[in-house]
Design a binder for these strands. Structure first.
Lengths: 141, 141
DNA sequence: AGGCAATGGTAGCCTAGGCAACAAGCAGGC
DNA sequence: GCCTGCTTGTTGCCTAGGCTACCATTGCCT
């Protein structure tokens, strides 16, 4: 429902929530590879790749080959994307605020905290959990 | 992540979480129409219709015409669907329990309650909110 | 140097959902 | 009776994601 609400609100900008997540991430870390992007978004490489396809087709970002490793594409936002990115961020905050209108400050804190814990739990049972480099994924080591 | 985790667990049964939601609902209320189904699942009529397509194609349910209103299809589970439905329910409960393993009983209660409130808030701003029959959709009556 | 495993990216097939346009059917007003 | 408007369902086009198989490249190890 959050996704749907967000998409409804930013439709006029010609983007979706998922696309905004990419833009936002690329704004903070320009030059990441597609694999890195996929991992950060917690999504399959294929899905990330197609996302990049769509965004590139609409000129929101550019693929540029890495000079050291010919396999990887480094991703960079275009100027327009950089411009719209902030606006989307504002909308995201607004939506979050509206959605939690019925909750007090401590409740929001608690909700956020609990969801983080649930997320960690779910991450621990995801197939991608095995390759965690340093974090202990299991629950009973 | 919940959806993904659930789908991973029930894959061997040849179904998905969304499909299970339909089966579960139809088990409790056989003979609902597609529109009713869509509303109960909080999904567009088109999406519900395609869902029914897939489930019918795989013989999990049957469309039967209503005798009074030739527009509507009434939906009924097949025997196999009825059988597998309970199993899926058990898996759902298990998953929920696993996901909230890091939370105490009161926390779970609180989380559930808060999410309900957030959901209500989001429902109030959805486009389908206007046609609510009795409930007041606004936030400050 | 050569081979082999790991990594990055892509394409194919699938489910899932949104929005819009449409046809068929129903119901109420005149 | 007839027309007008609403409801039900379907179809088309779109994004989004999962899984698998595959190709190219890289890097390690012998």
């Amino acid at each position: 429902m959050m996704r749907a609400a967000f998409d409804r609100r930013v439709r006029r900008l010609g983007l979706t929530r998922s696309q905004w997540l990419v833009l936002s991430l690329l704004h903070r870390r320009p030059g990441v590879s597609q694999s890195e992007l996929a991992e950060m978004l917690e999504v399959e490489r294929a899905a990330a790749g197609r996302m990049v396809d769509r965004l590139e087709r609409r000129n929101w970002l550019v693929r540029r080959p890495d000079r050291l490793d010919r396999r990887v594409n480094r991703l960079y936002l275009t100027a327009e994307a950089d411009a719209v990115q902030a606006e989307m961020g504002r909308i995201a905050v607004e939506l979050l605020d509206d959605a939690m209108a019925g909750l007090g400050a401590e409740e929001r804190e608690a909700l956020s905290d609990m969801l983080e814990r649930v997320k960690a739990q779910l991450q621990g049972m995801s197939p991608r959990a095995a390759s965690s480099p340093d974090a202990r994924p299991g629950l009973s080591p």
